[in-house]
Each structure stands twice: as C-alpha cells, then as structure tokens.
Design a protein around this nucleic acid. Structure first.
Lengths: 218, 218
DNA sequence: CTAGATAATGAACAATTGTTGACTAAGATT
DNA sequence: AATCTTAGTCAACAATTGTTCATTATCTAG
C-alpha cells in the first residue's frame, strides 16, 4: 500500500468500494483518489463550488488525468453513485434464495434489503442528497428499484386493470420517497422500522379508501 | 392544448407564463427572453452543452444581464421549472371547493388535477425530463405534492401505526413515479386514465398482500 | 413631465475549463 | 527480464466563466 496523506481518515469508509474491475492498477489508484477527494471536498463546499483544478490539486494528480477518465465533474460523481448502485443491486438480488412463495414476504424482503443498503451507506446518501448535486441520482436508483421490483411484481399482480409499468414506477418511487424522508430526517428509524412501514402502507389503506368494502369492524 | 408539429412557434407556448410578478418591465423582458432561448436551445443541444455565451448571443442580450438575474445556468433552469411549479400549486388547490367528505374522492380529485397540469405542459415536462438536466425537478415537484397531500392526508389517516411524514413521501413520489412513466411513454394515456390507475393502486392491493386478513370473502 | 433609480450594455480581468501533443513512468504480457 | 502498451505528467492553447466598473438607456414614482 502506497502512502496516504495523514490529513483525513486514512481509508475513506464512505465509498462503496466497487468498480475496482479496471485492470490497470494505476487507473484504480487515480479513480479512487479522485472519488475520495470528491467526497472530502463535498463535506466542505457545495458540489457546485468544487473546481476540477482544486480537486486534482488536493488529490495530487495532474488535471489531464481527470480528463482522461471523466468528461466533467458530474461524470465523476455519476461513477461514484454507480458504485453505490452496484451494491444496491447486489443487496437486492440476495434475499431471493430463501424466500418462500408468499409475494408479500418477497416484497418486504426486497424492501428490507434496500433499506439496509441505504442504511449501510448512510453517510454517502446523506452527502449526495444534501449536496443538491444529484446527477439524476433519484432517477437512477428508482430505475433500478423499478426494474428489480417489476421483475417480481408483474407476475404476481393478477388484477388485469392495473397497468404494470405505471404500477412499477408507482411502487419504485414510493419506496424512494420513503428513503428520502428517512435521509432528510437523519436516519432516526431503523431499517426494520422502514420495512415495517412499507408493509403497513401496502397492507393498510388510509381511511376512506376502503369505502366499497367497508364493513363493521369488531 | 400545445401544438407539437411546428419547428419553432413564434411565441414559445411551452413556458407556463408565470413569475411575471417582477415590477420592472425590463426585467420581465430579459428573463422571458432568456427562458425562451433556453427552451429553444434545449431542443437542439443537451443542457450541459449550452454555454451562457451562446445563450445570451441568441437572446440578443449582454452577458452581464444574465449574471444580474441568475447565478448560473442551473439557476435559470430552476426558475423556469419554478414557473411550472406555480401552475401546479394553483391547479392543485383548485378542486377543493367542490369535494365532499369522502377522502378517496379528495385524493383522486387532487390526482386528477396534478395529471391534468402535467398534461397541459406536456411538451415542457418532456423536454426537461429528457434533458437529464433536472436541477432537482423531481425533488422539487415531489416536495410540492408532498406538502399538499400531507396537508390532506395527515388528518384522514387514522391508523396510528402509520408514520405520517414517511407516508407522505411514499405517496408523493409514487405519483411522481407514475408521471415519469407517463412522460417517458409519450403521454399515450389520458389524464383521466392516470387518475383511475392511481385509484386502482390505492384501492386494490397486489396479489399476496392480503395474506393475513385473508379468509373466505363474504 | 421630470427626476431619481436601476436595468442593460460594453469592456476589461483573472480564473477555470476542456483539449492537444510530446515526453516520462509504470504496469501487463509473453 | 525484456518490451510492448498505456497511464500519468507537463506545458501550452482558445474558449468560457464569473466578476467588476463606468456609461447609457429605460422604467417607476411623484
């Protein structure tokens, strides 16, 4: 392991540690340095204020190195986000080995995994969301959630009156909406609480929505 | 009903025609020119490619004029989006005069108005969403939907196990998820269809979500 | 209509951006 | 270990950005 500057934490634990699939060690080193420095700078200034010149100066890299790998600042942030996404996808796929045939369990198991993923990278998500910077972060994440949950739900949703792609968008963004509230609230709830809430929202409908089937409760 | 086919309409009907509350006519003129030119340029290049220099050249304004009103390109786009938001808020508030006490009606009446708003500005929403540019457009719109629907739903949602702010985020982003699918699909559905789908999603739960209470229906 | 206010202009300015080419250093492959 | 490949460096470049200032044009208040 080569020399790290002692200024900040020696290993930046915010970064999801992915996209190390580049063959060349030099590329890995440079990209990692750029991502870590970006995160560090985002803790000090708004994303908008960070200049590429300052970034590479802090990362102790030549400016040309940045442009060799990224088109612009958004490109770097996008790849940093993509690293988190990879972990999300991995986390999401996992629980399916040990689910039984109950659709509800499947859905909430997925939900739990998503919430756990976000919670694991809480510092990262907080930073990115609060930095206004989101280069389509919401959209990218929802795209993933949508694809993943569409894959599950379209087979289960028997009601022929329901438009599947619209419903997938509905569900995916709904979950993301919960996550945003969670983030903005500073993660005061546990991932399990979040999953239980999701379950609650799907299972129980707000007052007045069950007009048609309402009967006397015991 | 916006006209799509023609290349460049003489008066750019995409712009929601708001934020004209600035007292000085010169400011109104400049801002309007900048917004219209921005829209025009976004039909040609990606948002990222548009330079302020080119913008003001096309708008026949001095570059200093731009900086007098906006911090940067995102600022201009943000205000353009804000104009649409104003119309959304207005549209949303409207239907509440003639709703009865049924919460479901209230909710779908709100939904209808939101869908109608988006449909009215279809060209605008398509442009902004497809331009990747969204300076937090999703977030801004959902913020509005959330505030508006939270105002309605928190009083109606009797279930004490439901976290209201989380639920508001859930509902707001869910609607936005539907809208995004709608936009990306090229508005093949009518606003009424969208509202009916929303109703369907809230009223009917997907198969398997009613496990616990499932018993012989009677 | 006049006078004060201020938006718009035009010109400078340092700084940053995005790109290029020649050169050096490091890693991958046999 | 030798060598082919390519990442990283350095310097230069035009272009754009963001800012300032004096001047002119236009608006609003009275």
């Amino acid at each position: 392991m080569p020399h790290f500057s002692k200024k900040l934490s020696p290993s930046n634990s915010i970064l999801p540690e992915v996209s190390q699939h580049a063959g060349d060690r030099r590329i890995r080193r440079s990209k990692k340095a750029l991502k870590e420095t970006l995160i560090a700078l985002m803790r000090e200034h708004d994303f908008k204020e960070i200049s590429i010149t300052e970034l590479v100066r802090r990362a102790d890299l030549n400016r040309g190195t940045f442009y060799k790998h990224y088109r612009d600042m958004e490109g770097l942030l996008a790849e940093t986000v993509e690293d988190a996404i990879s972990d999300l996808i991995f986390s999401y796929r996992e629980p399916y080995q040990h689910t039984d045939s109950l659709d509800l369990r499947k859905l909430t198991a997925s939900g739990v995994k998503i919430f756990e993923h976000v919670h694991r990278h809480a510092a990262f998500y907080t930073l990115v969301v609060e930095s206004q910077a989101l280069p389509g972060l919401s959209d990218r994440i929802c795209e993933v959630i949508k694809d993943l949950s569409l894959h599950d739900l379209e087979l289960e949703t028997l009601n022929p009156r329901i438009n599947h792609s619209l419903y997938a968008g509905y569900q995916a963004y709904a979950i993301w909406g919960m996550i945003l509230e969670w983030i903005k609230g500073g993660f005061v709830h546990s991932p399990e609480y979040m999953a239980n809430q999701l379950l609650e929202y799907i299972r129980n409908r707000p007052a007045g929505t069950d007009i048609i089937h309402r009967s006397s409760p015991r």
